[in-house]
């Protein structure tokens, strides 16, 4: 049994059907501009591009992946086409890997425009390109896995959307994008530390302007552990809840 064929086809089908559809592509293109515009208005004319660079990258990824994956999976479960995948002789891990890879790539794609805009057009200095790439990748992975986590909890498409927003909007303020984690009220700090995005943003801060609060190695380790735990926890839940 050639599992690679199954994996590839699950991935390609999702890319073609969901991620490469014009509305989603244009979302990935327009979104970063919208955020930059907003920040521009907020701060008058002068804002340090290095300061907002990580934020725009992180938000583009977060908003591109989390709801996309949870909505598509919930939609397929609702329309029962997901049963096809459950009937196929595939390991649950492989099947889910096939489903999330599309969203991860979509997250990475969404970061290209803001990176290009900030680094190439607005000439924001980048301190470490390698860590920037690693940060983007890990942020895509963790925000996609959050989407997977949500799709296990949701049964209706609108629920998937609501839960995504429930996660995302507080995250904007808690993960150190606009308010540094170190200056958050004491009560909110623990909340910030349990969010994987916090560490992804920290890597971005480091890679762009070295304004991080944890050593990047620690961030990388924490994010990897987060990803593995979230992945297997979701697999466990899927086996328990989707095969009733």
């Amino acid at each position: 049994m050639n599992s690679a064929i199954a994996f590839r086809n699950i991935l390609f089908k999702d890319m073609k059907n969901y991620y490469l559809k014009p509305p989603n592509i244009s979302w990935g293109l327009i979104f970063p501009f919208a955020w930059m515009g907003m920040l521009l208005i907020k701060s008058g004319s002068a804002f340090s591009i290095s300061e907002v660079f990580p934020g725009i990258v992180a938000l583009s990824i977060l908003f591109g992946t989390t709801s996309m994956l949870s909505v598509t999976i919930t939609f397929e479960r609702k329309s029962r086409s997901f049963e096809r995948l459950l009937l196929a002789p595939l390991k649950t891990e492989l099947l889910i890997l096939g489903k999330i890879t599309g969203a991860i790539l979509f997250g990475i794609f969404n970061s290209i425009i803001p990176v290009f805009l900030c680094a190439c057009i607005l000439k924001a200095p980048v301190n470490n390109w390698f860590l920037l790439a690693a940060g983007i990748m890990l942020l895509s992975i963790t925000s996609t896995l959050l989407g997977l986590f949500i799709s296990v909890a949701a049964t209706e498409v609108f629920e998937a959307q609501t839960y995504s927003n429930f996660f995302r909007f507080p995250m904007i303020f808690l993960c150190g994008l606009f308010i540094p984690v170190t200056s958050l009220p004491l009560l909110l700090k623990p909340l910030s530390f349990i969010l994987p995005v916090t560490y992804g943003v920290d890597i971005l801060h480091y890679s762009i302007s070295e304004s991080n609060f944890l050593p990047p190695v620690i961030d990388l380790i924490i994010l990897s552990v987060f990803s593995i735990v979230l992945f297997y926890f979701s697999i466990y839940n899927i086996r328990r809840k989707w095969i009733k």
Binding site: A6, I10, N17
Partner: peptide, 27 residues
């Protein structure tokens, strides 16, 4: 063959069949 049709609405008939074959590792 389930009690309700569960193929992908947005795919063509031919693509649906090919996708199902791919899930079983067919070349």
């Amino acid at each position: 063959v389930p009690d309700e049709n569960n193929l992908y609405e947005e795919l063509s008939g031919f693509d649906n069949l090919c996708f199902c074959g791919a899930l079983y590792g067919m070349k």
